[in-house]
Design a protein around this nucleic acid. Structure first.
Lengths: 156, 156
DNA sequence: TTGCTCCTCACGTCACGTGAGGTGGC
DNA sequence: TTGCTCCTCACGTCACGTGAGGTGGC
């Protein structure tokens, strides 16, 4: 009960500007993703009224933005790799009543495959960055040595 | 002399398609960068003739693409951070006759600043990827545990 | 009531993608 | 000569940026 209270404690719905600031994007980006259908349901909202985001909506958005930013994927690729909204449902509250165990197992298995692919991409990027880091460090060493060499000589 | 020979051995000029393949981009990208003035001199080439790239041209291009790809910079930011062509000149052949020691030292110092900034950005990215990796790994563990739990229950 | 943030078009921009039609080198 | 890759426009696309003009909540 106390845990449930804590969980509820931040279930407050946030407005688009607050969300955008937290995630480091603009409101335009969030609206664009909704337009592409990446955010599930803007359907329930009445046209003209404010968009409101739950913590799980924000988690979802953060995932999309990380896939785009850190892995450099196109929004099309992001769509392929991001968890379907179903997975969130499966892991949260009322999954017991929505489908069979077999169906849930299938959903979870595909989610696992997706996360494994994401991890592969993360590792590939990490190798790329490590290579780049080595090259930059070597370059820095060379430049510093060269500078020392220059300073030790008389002006030309 | 032998070292010089080895260095010369791959001084062969390459065509745009070959370069594009090696760097994992399209020819369009390379032409676009030239158009923006990121590649120094397309001036010497006669209009309509083939573009040719030296190994140091290719190194320069690889740097630009890494800055864009791995660090997610805009081409404008890339321009700010990429080494000026002068730096290559300074480090290579005939720098002795082009400018004073003082001038060369100034150029090298600014190059060092640039590389240090690049390294900072690399480290920031690495932290971001490490965080992402942790989250993905935790998620994977949860999903697998959940799946085991599901499999151990009778079908609903 | 006064700001503030939100809303919906809608045109602009950045970084290329993608043909269209034609020319040069092994 | 035959392919192949290259060339130059130039319009299209993706992922937003950027106002223009207007409405809703503390």
């Amino acid at each position: 009960m106390t845990v449930a209270m804590q969980a509820r404690a931040d279930e407050r719905l946030r407005r688009i500007g607050e969300v955008a600031d937290e995630l480091g994007v603009t409101t335009r980006t969030i609206r664009y993703y909704e337009q592409l259908g990446l955010l599930g349901d803007g359907d329930r909202r009445l046209k003209g009224t404010h968009r409101l985001y739950s913590p799980s909506d924000i988690d979802r958005l953060r995932e999309l933005i990380r896939l785009r930013d850190l892995l450099g994927l196109s929004l099309n690729e992001v769509t392929q790799l991001a968890d379907a909204a179903q997975v969130q449902q499966c892991l949260h509250a009322q999954w017991q009543h929505t489908s069979s165990n077999r169906t849930r197992a299938r959903i979870i298995r595909s989610a696992i495959t997706n996360v494994e692919r994401q991890l592969d991409l993360v590792h590939t990027r990490q190798r790329g960055l490590a290579d780049f880091e080595v090259q930059l460090t070597e370059k820095l060493t060379k430049l510093r040595a060269y500078l020392t060499d220059l300073d030790s000589r008389p002006d030309s």
